[in-house]
Amino acid sequence: MTLQKINTRNTIIILMIVAAGAFRLVSARYPYVLSNFSPIGAMALFGGAYFTDKWKAYVVPLIALFVSDIFLNHFYSGSWQIVDSSSIMVYVFFIAAVFMGTFIKKASILNVTAASLLAVVLHWLLTDLPLGNLYPHTFVGYGQSLVAAIPFEKNMLFGDLVFCAILFGGFELAKSKYTALRANREIAL
């Protein structure tokens, strides 16, 4: 694969992830309509699936998440917070979702939908641990937290499915038209 081909493919993947990350700012503008309708799971899965250099699969989506988090924190709190303690589990989920994306070898509707569903369940289980003061730090508190999160996770599932369709479908369509976007293993087939 030529250097030009690598740069073109990576540039398109990065731009798609950055565009998805920017949508988080749009959804924050309408929190009651788009509450948790977010591309974060799709960004992680997409990066994991398409970057041939796996370190980029983690770094690029994490940077997009981190930068959009800074702006979201400012939007909600009025201060330029880097990261708060409640977002640690979101980053743990995000890294796990990128890892899940590395197992998507062929982007089919079934593979991507299954990965999206698994990512949302993982997000639900990790990010709704009763770590703050809202719920008791017991098994019952965890159950209460999980139940309260169902509407938000439903929106996240819809968001992941929509953004996975856009990211994966868009990139697959682009690959079918432009060979510079194909990986070496795809050209050999």
Rank of each mutant, 00 (worst) to 15 (best):
P136S: 08
L3N: 06
N73R: 04
K56D: 06
L167Y: 10
A19G: 15
S27C: 05
L72W: 00
Y91C: 00
P61H: 08
V26F: 04
V112T: 15
L129P: 02
L125Q: 00
I70W: 00
N133L: 05
A188C: 11
S86F: 07
Q4R: 06
T52Q: 12
G143A: 05
L134A: 12
T127Y: 00
L125K: 03
F168Q: 10
L110K: 14
Y178M: 08
V83Y: 02
N155I: 08
K175N: 10
Y135G: 00
F66Q: 07
V59Y: 03
G159P: 10
P136W: 09
F163E: 12
W55D: 12
F103W: 12
S85T: 09
F71Q: 00
G170I: 04
N155Y: 07
F46G: 01
F103Q: 05
K105Y: 05
N7L: 13
S85E: 09
N7S: 11
E153F: 01
A28V: 13
P136Q: 11
V67D: 03
I104N: 03
D128N: 12
V147M: 08
G41W: 05
V140P: 11
A20P: 01
Q4D: 12
T138M: 07
M100K: 08
V18I: 12
G78R: 09
L134G: 10
F51A: 06
G48L: 07
I95K: 03
A107T: 15
D53C: 11
S108L: 03
F75W: 14
L3M: 10
K105H: 14
P31E: 13
T113D: 03
A148T: 13
N36F: 02
N155R: 09
I82H: 05
M1C: 14
D84N: 15
R185E: 11
G48T: 01
L161Q: 07
